Amino acid sequence: MTHQPAEGLRARRRRELMGTISEVALTLVAERGFSGISVQEIADAAGISLRTLFRHYPNKDAIFGGRIEQREEQILARLRERTPAEPLIESYLYAIDAMVDDYMADPGEAERELRVLREVPSLRAQYLVPSPEHETDAMDEALAAKLGCATTDARLSLLRRCLVNAVLQAISTWQRADGGSDLRGDVRNLVCLFAPMVALIKNSGTLCQFDTTLAPILTSDARHGEARNDGRAGLGRR
């Protein structure tokens, strides 16, 4: 059994200070919004100099991006705990369950984090729901291993975005109900909507094979469209 090296005093202090800066920044955002605060105000509220803050974070976006990255690392670590045979949807629900617990215990934390994501789409795209152009990361690799597809598969990126947005939608609904709804149940219901998509990806093989499953639907739509056009043409001749 290998033992992880103990965290050094300097590393622990750095981690704790970064956590303090992040908490202070989120509190200020809850009061005035992302655009209503400056890096200097965050430093002042944290009781540190601007130079000290910049030693830990290069800009304001990075302060909040770091918080989102921590969430993703937590989810990824829990996802890796699951067995390869477990259905991806069940593994994903387990992976995000700790975050759901945190939000249910502290609804204010959920509100602060989601407000940043709503007000700064670039943060959401960079750290939480990567754009189609993002470089492959550890989350892509974990999901691809569960699906049995390549990390470059376009369907993987689409599925990841769908799952994240399902969770965000459930949290938003829960917040609008002032925490009166069943957050865990709402998350499960929305995430499970994508179980057929997961099955289709796992069973269809390559992207080209996946596309051919849509052929009957597209052909049917095209025929209906032609029929509608013929009908309009007939009306025009009358």
Rank of each mutant, 00 (worst) to 15 (best):
T2A: 09
H3V: 15
E7W: 06
E7V: 15
L9D: 08
A11Q: 13
M18C: 13
M18W: 04
G19I: 08
I21V: 15
S22A: 13
T27W: 00
A30P: 00
F34M: 03
S35G: 08
S38M: 05
V39G: 06
V39R: 00
I42C: 08
A43G: 02
D44Q: 13
L50T: 13
T52S: 11
Y57C: 00
K60M: 01
K60W: 01
A62G: 02
G65D: 03
G66H: 10
Q70T: 06
E73W: 00
Q74N: 07
A77N: 03
R78W: 03
L79K: 02
E90C: 03
S91W: 03
L93K: 06
A95N: 04
E109I: 10
R112Q: 15
E113W: 01
L114D: 08
V116W: 04
L117V: 06
S122Y: 07
R124F: 02
L128A: 12
P130W: 09
P132H: 05
T136G: 03
A142K: 03
K146V: 03
T152S: 14
T152D: 11
A154D: 13
A154L: 14
A154T: 13
R160E: 06
R161Q: 12
V164P: 06
V164H: 04
N165V: 03
N165L: 11
N165E: 13
A166P: 08
L168V: 05
D186E: 15
V191D: 08
L193I: 15
A195M: 09
P196F: 00
P196S: 01
P196T: 01
A199V: 04
N203H: 14
N203I: 02
C208Y: 12
C208A: 15
Q209I: 01
T212V: 14
L218M: 12
R223Y: 02
H224D: 07
A227S: 13
N229T: 13
G231D: 12
G234E: 14
